[in-house]
Design a protein around this nucleic acid. Structure first.
Lengths: 231, 231
DNA sequence: ACCAAAGTTGACCATTCGGTCAATTCCGGT
DNA sequence: ACCGGAATTGACCGAATGGTCAACTTTGGT
């Protein structure tokens, strides 16, 4: 099946048991979700195989479909979890701080997110490249509202001459593009740089240089000498 | 099959016939490649279905596999074509021009590429997100060399105080990320902005604002008043 | 007009896939 | 010790998938 639409779906909710030393621990759902995130992030929905997810979770296929009735269900839950992570980590852009400091923190936060959850980032990218068949509605609602809201903050900064006159939406697209590229295009960056320890070598460099470049690009230095008043 | 390696593969090379009014035209391979690019760019290799490619090319499945012996063959040819497009369009960064003008043109060229071949961009992104199983070797060779070469130009500019002191590789990652985001994340940008005519509305705005922001971020203005000499 | 190569097509095949199911084991409460 | 629900598992099923094939049509050269 391809490009599915929402369907009423219930997922069995196994007993909520406390941790148990020798036994299972009842934490199977988490393992499955972790494995599914990995596989979906590399193959997308249609390309992923339930059996590969099962193998990666070290469980028989039947067990995976016991916890999640269908592959579709599993995908929905996994990607909605990723989306939540993504939206939460957008966090609030501190309005009170100086624009430069606010954005600097925001970019650092997004960069850290890519660093610590690269599979989540890739899964999100896969979904969007595929046309966002599942989370499209969310993007049109929650994300859109968020961008409008924060966009107004940007406009205020711009009116006060504290930020370059860029369409706020484009400013976000730039920030997201740059921060996510380090997770999504890891294979390319790894290939070009040939670094051994991607995590530290690349992200350390990125946080120290790329953040500066973005701040500069968005014209966020506090001491903006140049007048930029073209309403 | 997943994560395949290179295998000796030959593809039937149909007769090179001239165009023919009533008849076929002999240009089937092109149609198939176009259709394949579309499908692969949305579903990735494993997720794509030969039959869907055939349907999109308006041909029976058997015919597709007549021109390309296997799905794998077809994918390899399609993605190598995309990679060529990508590498060619990297083009030369004019060394003689002013840094600002050189980069400005380069970014504009990459932006135009995303605009006119969005499926190619998405297919490339899919491949890389999947770990670049097919083009990984190319990236480690051709692209790597290219980056090293152009990186030396950047270093020279930086030594002359005409460009901010950013690791040239990261500078490229930034540029690529921003320019490709408009093709790869079209669904997200469409969702957030809600524009009707994506092609003109979004790209027009991007070329006028984002290029400036990148140039500014890379510290490429000719009149760089701030000293920036920390070897 | 005829021929051989190239192109086209739908039927067909073996394998794989998502999903079901019945049988069995595990576990906590009593 | 025993019970009932939850969890686990492998066998199994129908549909879909990549690929093959033989029959048929088109095409260009002579």
């Amino acid at each position: 099946m391809e490009a599915f639409q929402s369907t009423g779906s219930s997922t069995r909710e196994p007993r909520e048991s406390a941790e148990h030393p020798g036994g299972v621990g009842g934490r199977q759902r988490e393992r499955i979700i972790r494995a599914a995130t990995l596989v979906f992030s590399r193959k997308g929905y249609d390309g992923a195989r339930v059996e590969e997810i099962a193998r990666k979770a070290d469980l028989p296929k039947g067990n995976v479909l016991y916890y999640f009735k269908t592959k579709k269900d599993l995908y929905r839950i996994v990607i909605e979890q990723v989306l939540t992570l993504w939206l939460d980590a957008l966090g609030d852009i501190a309005v009170d701080d100086s624009p430069e400091e606010a954005i600097r923190q925001y970019v650092n936060r997004k960069l850290a997110l890519s660093r610590h959850y690269p599979e989540a980032s890739r899964l999100f990218a896969m979904e969007v490249i595929s046309g966002a068949p599942v989370i499209g509605a969310h993007l049109r609602n929650q994300l859109r509202v968020w961008v409008e809201e924060k966009g107004r903050v940007f406009r205020r900064w711009q009116d006060q001459g504290q930020m370059a006159r860029i369409d706020p939406a484009h400013a976000f697209f730039m920030i997201w593009a740059v921060t996510q590229t380090y997770a999504d295009f890891e294979a390319q960056i790894q290939a070009v740089t040939g670094v051994q320890d991607y995590d530290t070598e690349i992200y350390e460099g990125a946080t120290s240089e790329v953040v500066d470049a973005l701040v500069r690009g968005l014209g966020l230095t506090n001491e903006m000498s140049e007048r930029r008043a073209q309403a």
